[in-house]
Simulated assay, not measured.
Amino acid sequence: MSKFGQLINTEVPVLLNFFTEWNEDSVGMHEVLRDVAAALGDNAKIIKINVDKNQELSDALRIKGLPTLIIYKNSEMKWRQSGTQDPNSLIALLKQYA
């Protein structure tokens, strides 16, 4: 968990994408997140977390629906939503917290 604390304690917003390879909506978000990363560059971090391989963290954050997207900045959760999102909405959200 201490590694998680290091991931979210940054000056730029961090978008966490909790996913599984067997969930169709989760897999569909990969391309959306590539677009968001390309648009924002160093102004945000995007981290994909496979819930099957990170069960303890997923349980601690009560991840139920997939995909679940969470934005952190300076170790504080700023936004959270389950389900697919479009790239423009995510870009606007991340810019809001930049």
Rank of each mutant, 00 (worst) to 15 (best):
S2Y: 04
S2G: 02
F4L: 09
F4S: 06
G5W: 00
G5M: 03
G5F: 03
G5K: 04
G5C: 04
Q6F: 10
Q6A: 12
Q6L: 13
L7G: 05
I8A: 00
T10R: 13
P13Y: 00
V14T: 01
L15S: 04
L15Y: 02
L16E: 00
L16H: 02
N17A: 11
F18I: 03
F18G: 01
F19C: 02
T20G: 07
E21M: 12
E21N: 15
E21W: 11
W22M: 12
E24M: 09
E24N: 12
E24W: 07
E24K: 14
D25L: 11
D25C: 10
S26N: 03
S26F: 03
V27Y: 02
V27A: 04
G28D: 13
G28W: 10
G28R: 15
M29Y: 01
M29E: 01
M29P: 00
M29R: 02
M29D: 00
H30V: 11
E31M: 10
V32L: 05
R34H: 12
R34W: 08
D35H: 14
D35P: 06
V36D: 01
A37W: 02
A38W: 10
A39C: 11
A39G: 09
A39I: 06
G41Q: 00
G41Y: 02
G41S: 03
G41F: 00
D42G: 06
N43E: 15
K45S: 05
K45G: 04
I46Y: 07
I46K: 07
I47Y: 09
I47A: 10
K48H: 11
I49Q: 01
N50F: 05
V51M: 07
D52Y: 06
D52K: 06
K53G: 05
K53Q: 14
N54L: 07
E56L: 11
L57M: 12
L57C: 12
L57K: 11
L57D: 13
L57G: 12
L57I: 11
S58L: 09
S58V: 08
A60P: 09
R62L: 11
R62I: 08
I63H: 01
K64Y: 12
G65D: 14
G65P: 06
G65E: 13
G65W: 09
P67V: 06
T68N: 07
T68K: 05
L69E: 04
I70N: 03
I70V: 15
I70F: 03
Y72Q: 01
Y72K: 01
N74K: 09
N74L: 06
N74V: 02
N74M: 05
N74I: 04
E76K: 14
E76V: 11
M77P: 13
K78A: 04
W79I: 09
R80N: 10
R80C: 09
Q81K: 15
S82N: 08
S82V: 06
S82W: 05
G83V: 06
T84Q: 07
T84G: 06
Q85M: 00
D86H: 13
P87K: 13
P87C: 07
P87S: 15
S89V: 10
S89A: 13
S89M: 11
L90D: 02
I91P: 05
I91T: 15
A92T: 14
A92I: 09
L94V: 05
K95R: 15
K95A: 08
Y97H: 07
Y97D: 05
A98E: 15
